[in-house]
Design a protein around this nucleic acid. Structure first.
Ligand code: DCP
Ligand code: MG
Ligand code: MG
Length: 762
DNA sequence: ATCCTCCCCTAC
DNA sequence: TAAGGTAGGGGAGGAT
């Protein structure tokens, strides 16, 4: 029970066995950029109708793709079969792909119609990869409109906060303008004149003057401070307003029906209607009785027949997969924690401020606590006979299978079994290994007990994962080692699972101390022992140094912290970059300047699946993408966030790569990702789908080897990530306010209580 | 210099 | 059979 100063951490050969784990399979990464440049769609020149089955399929698949694209991109191809797409009879806008920026005359819808009719394309979202021309009217028009709105707005609300929001909307235009990326910005008249001349005219004389197009930056001040607008060269150009702003996050909600900035402010149905994040309830790992599950067919018999283990057979794969994924569980745990303990996390001022100058003089006391073989410990409570047997948690007990061990107890670890090993390899090196199934609800419950105890003993708790946290006990009166001891005892009494703890002067050393205290132990590293402790420590034991960095260091004859200690900071920075070099130099000296952060701002929301992804046709692939968008949209809404940048990632079997070692795995892949930034943050599922579809289209995933950049049959993983996040609160209010303004349209959306609520706040 | 995009790396 | 997710840090290299 006592802190045995085991030397396991140092002598453990885990670092060296891990190389075999990644042999030949997917974990290898390619540094290569995408070999292709899918700048323009490669069109096969379809000749005679379907000479054979193959060309029939090619044609069919192209139609499918075109149909799919129609949402995000509209092109004459998508317009349907009425138009013969063959030979020379391409419309006058063939090869032209426009993006309409802001208010135009003719309207963007009219322009869209012209493009469709005459062989061009119309993009709903700007991307330098897909757009060839930006269409933009004179700014004053749109500006006037916006300003007029602003005045009405003033009359109605007399709210300075809202002015700020309005201004940010106006500046959205500037930002958008700055997106031109060297593409021609052309007046809409060009389109009309081309039509009149019945040919593609040189657009040079139609260049739109970008009068106010210098990038402007709207500075969002810290709470309660002045609000400024900085001009191009950094000088404060205008002091716009000086006001108390509790928080100003941004702009109105994206309108899924239109990207025009003078949008009709209708509430997007999906995001506005359901305030409760149903997704969170559905996904709850706490639901002892699965009430809400009845909402989705998957649990009940209806959909069950279709359920499978891949996208080939399960139309509801996204949802079903996540239900069983351990990595999804631990990956999403932090958000559930945020919700569950939000009362303890809010109002805590960011310790980022170095205001604790008085504290810095005092030497910090950090405790790191981590549950021992968490997933196993929780399950094994029900099997007391197994405590001295080798046990692991895994989906499968198949001795020839490729299911992964999630956690192994310390008996099993002595045989070399650890998280991530295939069950067949685990069985090979430990034939008597007992496999137990997962119980995510139980993990959730124990984690809650764990954190309740931590928060009881200390107010500065930083959650690292469901079984691991840092505590800053610098200002506590009690002896840190005694606190750790008490906490560990209470954890064991409450949960019947053991935890280990490390105590030291900074996060790094506390973390390392826990490692050498495990299992069921604790260790204090006094500052005078630090050098001794680090001297022979393998570099791989340092947090932030994984397999790749380890290999890189090894090739430079650096394997221990002691050896790294000898390398100059400059040399490390040259080889690993400024920040990482700095980190290496610090860590091998036991220096760590990080502080315990109770609240951590979320910077991205995303979902991806890289298992069970197999498609035989584009339809299924599109279907999957649509569901992934739903998932991400629900997650955004579930945590009250909206984002401006949407990134789509596609994993594709690497050229020459064999079938994955792992059943239904992604194997050795290259991945491509591409993002689109829109001017208005969104959480709306329709908007996400449109944007994701547009990006997907730009990858040119097709069913046809010769003409596609990615064969849909080789897609092994898809991910969707949202960044440039803003809170949805404010934007929702502003949006409602706008609806009030423009009450002529969508008046039925004006839920009285909604408006009342929003005005109340102001 | 600073920002942005597209990656890779890391940890649980 | 089996459930290889999630989010942050940061580097390279290009645009501005
Ligand atoms: N590759 C991984 C790593 C972790 N986990 C899950 C199972 C672990 O039980 C839990 C906590 O991770 P830890 O790194 O803390 O590992 P353990 O708690 O299992 O063991 P230890 O005693 O080393 O902390 O996260 C996982 O499923 N797959
Ligand atoms: Mg643990
Ligand atoms: Mg842990």
């Amino acid at each position: 029970m006592n802190s045995r100063s085991s030397s396991r951490a140092a002598s453990n050969a885990a670092a060296f066995t891990s190389s075999s784990a990644s042999s030949g399979d997917s974990r290898k990464r390619s540094r290569n950029p995408p070999t292709t440049n899918p700048q323009r769609p490669l069109r096969s020149k379809a000749k005679s109708p379907f000479a054979d089955f193959r060309s029939y399929m090619v044609e069919k698949n192209r139609k499918l793709r075109a149909q799919f694209q129609a949402d995000a991109t509209t092109s004459s191809l998508g317009a349907g079969s009425s138009r013969a797409d063959s030979g020379d009879d391409k419309g006058i806008f063939h090869g032209v792909s426009i993006f309409v920026d802001g208010f135009t005359i003719p309207s963007s819808q009219e322009l869209r119609g012209y493009m469709l009719k005459h062989g061009g394309r119309f993009e709903n979202y700007f991307s330098k990869h897909t757009v060839t021309h930006i269409i933009c009217s004179n700014l004053p028009d749109s500006k006037m409109r916006n300003l007029r709105c602003e005045q009405v707005f003033l009359v109605n609300f007399a709210s300075s906060v809202l002015i700020c929001s309005l201004l940010s909307i106006v500046f959205g235009l500037f930002w958008l303008r700055a997106f031109s990326h060297g593409l021609p910005v052309v007046r809409p008249q060009w389109v009309l004149d081309c039509l009149a001349a019945n040919r593609l005219l040189n657009f040079c004389s139609y260049f739109q003057l970008i009068m106010w197009g210098m990038p402007m930056k709207l500075v969002l001040p810290p709470e309660g401070q002045c609000f400024r607008c900085d001009g191009p060269s950094g000088q404060a150009s205008e002091e716009l307003e000086c006001m108390k702003v509790e928080k100003l996050f941004g702009e109105i909600n994206a309108n899924p029906e239109s990207t025009d900035l003078e949008v009709k402010f209708s509430v997007p149905p999906a995001s506005g209607a359901i305030p409760t994040p149903l997704s969170m309830i559905n996904k709850s790992y706490m639901g002892h009785q699965k009430i809400h599950e009845s909402l989705d067919s998957s649990v009940n018999c209806i959909g069950a027949s279709n359920q499978g283990h891949s996208t080939l057979t399960d139309p509801n794969f996204v949802e079903n997969y996540f239900k069983s994924s351990r990595l999804h569980f631990i990956g999403t745990w932090r958000n559930r924690y945020r919700k569950r303990f939000s009362n303890l996390l809010t109002g805590y001022k960011s310790s980022n401020e170095k205001t604790n100058c008085c504290v810095t003089k005092q030497k910090a006391s950090i405790i790191h606590v981590d549950m021992d073989c968490f997933f196993v410990s929780v399950i094994i409570r029900n099997f007391p006979d197994l405590v001295d047997k080798p046990v692991a948690v895994c989906h499968s007990n198949n001795p020839r299978g490729t299911a992964e061990i999630s956690s192994a107890n310390y008996v099993a670890r002595n045989y070399g079994v650890k998280a991530g090993t295939f069950v067949r390899d685990a069985k090979a090196c430990c034939p008597h290994l007992v496999i137990l199934p997962y119980d995510f609800e139980a993990y959730e419950e124990v984690a809650e007990q764990f954190y309740s105890i931590l928060h009881k003993h200390c107010s500065k708790v930083q959650a690292l994962s469901c079984d691991e946290a840092f505590l800053d006990v610098t200002v506590c009166d009690d002896d840190p080692e005694e606190i750790a001891s008490m906490i560990r005892k209470e954890i064991e009494d409450t949960t019947r699972c053991t935890a280990s703890a490390g105590i030291a002067g900074n996060l790094l050393l506390a973390y390392l101390a826990t490692r050498s205290a495990k299992p069921n132990g604790q260790r204090f590293i006094p500052s005078e022992k630090v050098e001794d402790y680090l001297k022979d420590l393998p570099v791989m034991a340092l947090p932030g140094i994984g397999y790749a960095t380890y290999e890189k260091l090894k090739s430079r004859q650096i394997q221990t912290c002691g050896q790294m200690y000898m390398i100059s900071k400059e040399a490390l920075q040259k080889d690993f970059g400024i920040r990482i070099g700095d980190m290496l130099w610090n860590y091998c000296r036991g220096i760590d300047n990080r502080t315990v952060e109770v609240v951590q701002e979320r910077k991205s929301v995303g979902a991806e699946v890289n298992w069970g992804i197999r498609f035989n046709n584009l339809t299924d692939c599109h279907h999957f993408l649509v569901n992934l968008c739903k998932e991400v949209s629900l997650r955004l809404q579930g945590c009250g966030l909206q984002g401006r940048a949407i990134t789509l990632k596609v994993k594709k079997r690497k050229k020459g790569a064999a079938e994955p070692l792992k059943f239904m795995g992604c194997g050795d892949c290259e991945s491509v990702s591409r993002s689109i930034t829109v001017p208005v943050a969104t959480d709306n599922v329709v908007a996400l789908q449109r944007i994701a579809k547009q990006i997907f289209a730009s990858f040119h995933v097709e069913c046809d080897y010769e003409y596609s950049h990615i064969d849909v049959k080789e897609v092994r993983g898809i991910g969707l990530h949202i960044t440039k996040l803003e809170s949805s609160d404010i934007s929702r209010k502003v949006q409602l306010a706008f609806m009030c303004l423009t009450s002529d349209q969508d008046g039925d959306c004006l839920k009285p209580e909604g408006v009342a609520k929003s005005t109340l706040k102001f």
